[in-house]
Design a protein around this nucleic acid. Structure first.
Lengths: 101, 101
DNA sequence: CAGAATCCTACAAGATACTG
DNA sequence: CAGTATCTTGTAGGATTCTG
């Protein structure tokens, strides 16, 4: 799945091209979120969400934190590298805004 | 192919997620280019390049101009809407720069 | 709750050959 | 030159069911 021959931006865009990924990144800008919440926000089936989260982790854009609690609790947050993406996310959101008018 | 139910940014990212599309858009920032040149820049087979260019046209990000000459000549250029994408392209390129260091 | 396992269908994308 | 036609293989991603 990881095509290391590609430029980082191509890897990134390939991942962001998948359904829900932009929403995931944007949502995490406001702080960590749990699996279940991301599922509701993106409307992805668990299998697909799980795949995307792993790929985002592989690219070191998000981190996964597991708490030893019952019931289980896990949350996902932007990494430093992921936060470096924020200007691009904003630019894309701004473009969308403009293109809706 | 056109999933009109999606938000513009999701449509855009789905398209930009395909191989070569980022390169196409970036290259066109410097002015119109011909099919053959885009083929060399992206390393895409003609069929795939042709598909991507049509999809970019559908989203009104690029325009196609055909000249009645022999041999045939066609070129592609960013539209106004496509130029609206430039801040995002720059942000992505900047992110890549940073992430390489 | 947070996923993993299994199954399925549609389409991505590359290779190759051909043409107005 | 700028594509189209045809064929093949891999993967996306949705549905559903199950579990540590």
């Amino acid at each position: 799945m990881l095509k290391s021959a590609e430029r980082p931006v191509e890897q990134l865009l390939e991942l962001m091209g998948h359904k829900g990924v932009f929403t995931i990144l944007r949502s995490l800008q406001n702080g960590p979120l749990r699996f279940g919440v991301l599922q509701q926000l993106t409307n992805l089936p668990p299998r697909t969400l799980s795949l995307r989260l792993k790929e985002l982790e592989e690219l070191r854009l998000i981190s996964r934190t597991e708490y030893n609690e019952v019931p289980p609790r896990v949350d996902y947050a932007l990494t430093e590298r992921g936060r470096g993406l924020e200007p691009a996310l904003e630019a894309l959101a701004a473009w969308e805004e403009k293109s809706l008018r």
